[in-house]
Design a protein around this nucleic acid. Sequence first.
RNA 1: GUGGAUAUAGCUCAGUUGGUUAGAGCGCCUGACUGUGGCUCAGGAGGUCGGGGGUUCAAAUCCCCUUAUCCACCCCA
Length: 455
Amino acid sequence: MSPKISVRAAAGTRDFLPEEMALRNYVRNVIETSFQRFGFQPLETPAIERLDVLTGKYGEEADRLVFKILKRGRELEKGLESGDLADLALRYDLTVPLARVAAMNHGSLVYPFKRYQIQPVWRAERQQKGRYREFVQCDADIVGSSTISADAEIIALTYEILTALGIPKFCIHVNHRSILHDIITGVCGVTEDKFVAACVAVDKYDKIGWEGVREELDRRGLTKTMVEAVITALNFSGLPADVMAETAKQFEEFPELLSAYGEMSRLFEELQAQGVPEESLSFTHYLARGLDYYTGPIFETIVEEPKIGSITGGGRYDQLIGMFSGQDIPATGTTIGIERIFDVMRELHLFDAEIDAPVQALVAVFSKETRLESLKIAAELRRAGIKTEIYLDEAKKLGKQFAYADKKRIPFVIIAGPDEIAKGEVTIKDLKKGEQKVVGRGKICQALRAPITQS
RNA sequence: GUGGAUAUAGCUCAGUUGGUUAGAGCGCCUGACUGUGGCUCAGGAGGUCGGGGGUUCAAAUCCCCUUAUCCACCCCA
């Protein structure tokens, strides 16, 4: 025997055993189906990107969370001298890889290019519940359209997915980076270099309240007047129509805000036309979002319970692709946080009715002599599209085989013992009901599809 | 990356001021049940007390280090 090595997974990573995979696949399928229903097409990109593709896109803080990959061989030795140790990295999100792909294939894509992507991403964070170092993201993005209709479509898609999954109470918060920018700098007089800091502070309102935001803004070096101006100007959130009405009055002297508000008005109109109820939306002026690359409308979904933070997040990033191609291509999109959605659904027991039995029937083996007959039955069922297992171990007592079916939650056990074989029949037992009946060999599939009744 | 808490059987947890062979419930295995799961009853297996070092006659228990998890910050899905 080789010495025992310590068995543990890398920090912040997880294994998904079959039971959990069933739930994960269910969520994934619902999301993917919705993506396709809106006409998005799949894209996959490598887990590994060149480091320079990823750095400088997310903001100073986030750059440190990128998992870097050491250079190899002689390059690493050289790197040790220069201090330049890494040249590759694991992707941090799916948006930047998309931007790279869009830049590289600019000439051949059909615009607007609508793609979805469901793949793992990696972040070198300290883990917490609902925050992992390896997790799957589901992104849908529209590249090459600068119209607000594209943003509306992304939000409508988000609504459709969360509804299809049965998430009960969620609210999609929407804001606009231009509005945020013009209010904070133009209306409140905050200098350009403090804009990002002000956003970060304001974005925390839900967590720390206006008192907390006040302290935070103060700590970040805004004057008292600016702090109060920012808080007064951004303390608007709620039903889009109400917020539009209030802010229209508030900011009518600031014409530079008008076009962004006009866009927002159109956005909400389009959402209404697509059947997204107003109650599921909020025009939230203090929503900022951390990533640097957003330029226009931004959105984020919050669930009321359980309190797990945001389950989707996205926005428009009209200048990101230009960082690769030198020519700006407008784009907007969202991430659907499948990991958190999964946690929410588990906590609220939303799965129970949705998951199919992984195996529908177990063909029991009465004895060594009858095994071939059982195999024939199993083969027939499989050909008919029924998920079927045959008991594999040395023929044990039937009790064992029933217990196995019970533990694996296989709903039906099919027995072909000497009696049944002699008559060309099988016994089918419905484990849920605890009832069984005898049917002819040709009628097994039919019997499995119809509920078993007392006979 | 910063600060704090936790770590005992497959799971959830007991374990008294350091003191014999570390316990319970659930789960697992076997049998009662020689053609039938769940319920009941009777047995049984399973732990280098996260890992390493130290203090002590003696450590699951005290100290140090380390790793992982959880919480807060940071940030985000």
